Every structure is written in C-alpha cells, then in structure tokens.
Amino acid sequence: MMSSIESDYGNWTSSFAKLLVDNNDPLSIEHYFKCLKSMNPEFVLPLAKAIFRSDERETLEKVTTPCTIVQVKNDPVVPNSVAYYMQKKIKGETTVEFVNADRHYPQLTAPLELIHVLSRVLGFEI
C-alpha cells in the first residue's frame, strides 16, 4: 500500500475508496475519493505509515473503563476477530455492537443503522 501511495497516488485514492466504501453507494465512494484526492500526498504517506504500522495491543490490558466496540459486520480492513480480540483483552466491562453494513465507513453508507447502535449504547431515544 505504501508503495502505491508513493508511486501512483491518483490510482491509489480510487482503489482505496472502492475498498473502504460500500460499492452499492457510488455517491459516498465519489465523496471519499474526492476527499482523499484533495489531500497532499506528502502528508498521506506518513499518516498511512503511522496508522498501518502502529501496534497498540499491549495498551488494551491497561484499559479498565467500560467500553463498547462498534464493529461493521463486513469490514475488509478490520475483521470481526479484531473486535473480539479487543473485547477479550480490555480489562473493563466490554461489549461488541455490530452495525449491519458493508465496508469500513458506516457513517457514510449506513448512517441510520450507526445512529441506532450508538443511541442504544448511549441510552438515548431516537
């Protein structure tokens, strides 16, 4: 991925947007693509390296605050096993709530489902 960002930023933005946003929502894909395209590639590469090369698993055992992990059911970047791993490692009471959506950005493609999950978790009526 890093070499794709460096060698052909334009092509990477298009394929990355299609990977992370539900293919049934071309408007959101286009919106995310335009956001990525507008970013300066000089800043994207260090940011991508920081995100994809960081490993904070040892931090999870230090978390004692009750947590809710919100996970998309079909995420190609963060599989469900990651949510369950985090739930197991976090010391505080932790639950996993699923958003019935595809891909990585439910706030774009399934906003009502995400709002429903968040309102249930936070105890708000909508």
Rank of each mutant, 00 (worst) to 15 (best):
C67H: 01
L19C: 05
M39G: 12
C67G: 03
V63R: 06
E58G: 12
V77W: 02
Q107D: 14
L60I: 00
M1C: 10
T94S: 02
M86I: 01
S81H: 05
I29F: 10
F43D: 06
A17N: 02
H31D: 15
H104G: 07
V121E: 10
V96W: 05
V63M: 09
P76W: 03
V117R: 00
V21Q: 13
F98S: 01
Y9T: 06
V96A: 07
T64C: 13
C35T: 10
T68C: 04
L20G: 14
I29C: 13
G92H: 04
D102Q: 12
A83E: 01
V82I: 06
V63G: 09
L19M: 07
T65C: 14
N24S: 13
V96T: 05
L108H: 10
M2F: 12
R57H: 13
R57G: 14
P111H: 02
T13P: 05
Y105K: 13
L114D: 10
D55E: 09
N11C: 06
C35R: 06
E113F: 09
D22G: 11
F16E: 14
N24V: 05
P111N: 06
G123A: 07
L112R: 11
M2P: 13
R103S: 15
L20V: 11
S54P: 08
K18Y: 11
V121R: 08
S3C: 03
V70N: 02
F43M: 03
T109L: 11
V70W: 01
V44C: 04
E6V: 05
